[in-house]
């Protein structure tokens, strides 16, 4: 399988009073045209990994890697000009909360059309935007085009956000907790949209989430991160074969509808996992 994205030994550090703190410590993986899940708890470095791929590490931090390649393009020393050509057009990102990631004083339509216009296609911007909103299962695209983000529900806002990220038909989509702010029933609908885009358009998807159960059912492969490192890589169909105690602990501590274990097993952390 041709590799769309290759990451080797990615390290991200932030300065602190006690000297630089590494939040991502040597992450390596490659991605084809598939769904890759990255799971971990808050602070495990999963979001920073996703941001670094798009060159969006906050200015105070430094990201270094031995290799960071997207479709044969070396991203490590890409100029701002090269980044502008790639971001949005060929690789894009869906953030967690539509409330904070859509511009509150622009209608959804204007934001969508801005994305189309920036990456060519000035004339058909409006038609393309309407078609894209339909593609993400928005029933009344005309109304949504004219609406401001606060006039939409969370699920609608997140769909509009996904539409905006996909309107340029990128090859790589990084989705950082795209459904965590949504209700379970809406969540499944949004995932189906992403799923179709991967299967039909052959897009590569990096799906970042804290929800191990969801990732296991949605993705093809799963990376489990703990304290800035990948502790285990698993085939999503064989989650039950997880061998790392952290992954096992995470799987066990979730309450289930059918189960009745009480008290719930809690995760006993081991300092050895940090190595």
């Amino acid at each position: 399988m041709s590799q769309l994205l290759t990451v080797e030994n990615l390290r991200i550090a932030f300065p602190s009073r006690k000297g630089p703190v590494e939040v991502v410590r040597g992450v390596s993986f490659s991605l084809g045209r598939e769904r890759l899940g990255i799971v971990g708890e808050s602070g495990s470095g999963k979001s920073q990994t996703g941001r670094a791929i798009l060159g969006l590490t906050p200015v105070s931090g430094t990201a270094t890697a031995e290799r960071l390649e997207f479709d044969g393009i070396n991203l490590r020393n890409a100029s701002p000009r090269q980044w502008r050509k790639l971001r949005g057009a060929r690789m894009s990102m869906v953030m967690q909360d539509p409330k904070f990631s859509l511009n509150p004083v622009m209608t959804v339509g204007r934001q969508l059309m801005e994305a189309v216009k920036l990456h060519g296609g000035k004339t058909e911007a409006r038609d393309k935007s309407l078609a894209m909103l339909e593609a993400v299962q928005i029933r009344d695209p005309e109304r949504v085009m004219a609406a401001y983000p606060h006039e939409l529900s969370g699920g609608m806002g997140q769909r509009a956000m996904i539409a905006m990220m996909l309107i340029t038909e990128p090859d790589l989509l990084i989705a950082d907790e795209p459904t965590s702010a949504l209700d379970v029933t809406v969540q499944i609908e949004v995932l189906r949209i992403l799923d179709r885009l991967v299967t039909e358009r052959g897009m590569g998807l990096v799906f970042i989430s804290h929800d191990l159960r969801l990732v296991a059912t949605f993705c093809d492969r799963v990376l489990v991160m703990y304290a800035g490192r990948v502790v285990e890589e698993l085939d999503a169909r064989h989650m039950d074969q997880a061998s790392h105690p952290y992954t096992r602990g995470l799987l066990n501590c979730l309450p289930t509808i059918s189960g009745d274990t009480r008290p719930l097993p809690v995760l006993a952390r081991d300092d050895a996992w940090l190595e």
Partner: peptide, 15 residues
């Protein structure tokens, strides 16, 4: 809360 912390808090509430 994270899943692992959720388990701890649920156990606490139960107890």
């Amino acid at each position: 809360l994270d899943a692992s912390i959720q388990a701890e808090v649920l156990n606490l509430l139960d107890r």
